[in-house]
Each structure stands twice: as C-alpha cells, then as structure tokens.
C-alpha cells in the first residue's frame, strides 16, 4: 500500500516542484534577459525559451513515469 502511494507521491512532488521552479526560472531568469534583438524578437525568443523549458519538463516527466511503471510491473 505504502509503496504504491509512494510511487505516485514522488512523481507528484517532482511535478509540483518543477512547476514552481519553472515559474521562478521564467520570472527571474528568462523574462529579465537582455537580448540583442528588437523588442518583438526578444519577446518571441523569451516565449520560445519558456516553451522549450515546459517541453523538457514534459519529456522528463514521461521518462520518469515509464521507468517507474515498468520497474514496478516487473517487481509486482
């Protein structure tokens, strides 16, 4: 019972903390960036950085879930 819940809770805490960390990275690091482009291009570049960060988060999340699931299934 505890192990079943622990699998999920670890992923949940990872996802939640990544969400908070991601918000901080976007707010404190990406948004204040001074890029050598026009204002429009600079904003587009910041949006692209932020989207890439989110996509990386999703990719990592998917990898962790697959690994946790298949190893649990083998052990179960």
């Amino acid at each position: 019972m505890i192990r079943r819940v622990a699998d999920f809770v670890l992923i949940l805490i990872f996802v939640w903390s990544c969400m908070l960390l991601g918000l901080w990275v976007i707010d404190a690091l990406i948004v204040p960036l001074n890029l050598p482009f026009s204002a429009l291009m600079s904003n587009v570049a910041k949006a692209v950085f932020s989207v890439l960060l989110v996509l990386f988060w999703f990719w990592l999340w998917r990898k962790i879930v697959r690994r946790v699931f298949w190893s649990a299934l083998k052990r179960g």
Binding site: R3, R4, V5, D7, F8, V9, V68, F69, R75, G76
Partner: peptide, 24 residues
C-alpha cells in the same frame, strides 16, 4: 494501471488508493 503495477488489488482497495492520491 500504475497503481496496480505493484500487484493485484480488490476494486475497493484500488479506489481507496485513488482517494489517498487525490487527498495528497
């Protein structure tokens, strides 16, 4: 399927785990 990966459960037991996860 993830909840059941560690072994079979009764349906009632699986539902209980869903509620614990939702509570957390």
């Amino acid at each position: 399927r993830m909840i059941l990966a560690r072994g079979p459960l009764t349906e009632r037991g699986a539902v209980r785990i869903f509620f614990i996860l939702s509570g957390i």
